[in-house]
Amino acid sequence: MAQGHRGLDLLLPEEKGGTLYVLMLLSFFPLYCWLRGGETREDEIEISFVCHRPEGLETLQEETRFSKKELQFLYRAFKNECPSGVVNEDIFKLIYSQFFPQGDSSNYAHFLFEAFDTNKNGCLSFQEFVAGLSLILRGSMYDRLNWAFNFYDNDKDGFITKEEMMKIMQSIYDMMGKYVYPSMHDDIPREHVEHFFQKMDRNRDGVVTIEEFMESCQKDENIMRSMRLFDSVF
């Protein structure tokens, strides 16, 4: 499974404008591979939990924008991998450590788990899990950019600081490990952060607001094009 991310090698050091693209790829594909690994041969399966029963299928369709067949596939894989009906942070860390064995993915997995764990109870139900995937894969451009902003905004105060961005960028480089090519020097994550703020912090007050973030991203065709790549996934 480790070879699954080799296509990202040149993006990290070369394309500072592709940071959001890399983030979205890293957020989704290990989880997707994990679900694919849990697929069974059954064609149909009805949603029902023993320990943690999710909402009805029709309600989930309305909330997530996934079709009935897609939800059945997702639930089948989720149930196979998590018979208890919930995912905790340790499972996220295990998934990412298997996908990026040459690096330390624990911090990135922690940040991503927190982004999915919307009710902050330390575990993800099937509903929370598919809601997060839906925002990334099926949400409007506003939904996807809002998700990315909240991912960077660690303390959820409505602003992205350089310290918050640095934590995320460092976690990405730590996770990639020696697979980053060409090899990076210690200042590369900070250079990405500085580039991000030069682009996004329009009033130069040292923080990025959701308005600045949205406006800057929507004016950047590279970011918009990369975000639209998810329209054809799954």
Score class of each variant (00 low, 15 high):
Pro13Trp: 09
Glu14Trp: 06
Glu14Gly: 00
Lys16Arg: 13
Lys16Asp: 04
Thr19Cys: 11
Tyr21Ile: 00
Tyr21Ser: 04
Val22Leu: 13
Met24Tyr: 10
Met24Lys: 14
Met24Pro: 00
Leu25Lys: 10
Leu25Pro: 00
Leu26Pro: 01
Leu26Ile: 07
Ser27Trp: 02
Ser27Ala: 14
Phe29Pro: 00
Leu31Cys: 07
Leu31Glu: 01
Leu31Arg: 02
Leu31Asn: 04
Tyr32Asp: 08
Cys33Val: 03
Leu35Tyr: 05
Leu35Met: 15
Leu35Arg: 02
Arg36Glu: 14
Arg36Gln: 14
Gly37Ile: 02
Gly38Trp: 07
Thr40Ile: 01
Thr40Ala: 06
Arg41Asp: 15
Glu42Asp: 10
Asp43Arg: 12
Glu44Asn: 11
Glu46Ala: 15
Glu46Ile: 13
Glu46Thr: 15
Glu46Trp: 13
Ile47Pro: 03
Ser48Cys: 09
Phe49Cys: 15
Phe49His: 12
Val50Ser: 11
Val50Trp: 08
Cys51Glu: 14
Cys51Ile: 01
His52Phe: 12
Arg53Val: 11
Pro54Phe: 05
Glu55Arg: 12
Leu57Cys: 04
Leu57Glu: 07
Leu57Asn: 01
Leu57Trp: 02
Glu58Gln: 12
Thr59Asn: 07
Leu60Arg: 01
Leu60Ser: 02
Gln61Met: 12
Gln61Ser: 01
Glu63Arg: 15
Thr64Gln: 07
Thr64His: 07
Thr64Asn: 06
Arg65Glu: 06
Arg65Leu: 13
Phe66Ala: 03
Ser67Lys: 07
Lys68Ile: 06
Lys68Ala: 11
Glu70Lys: 12
Leu71Asn: 07
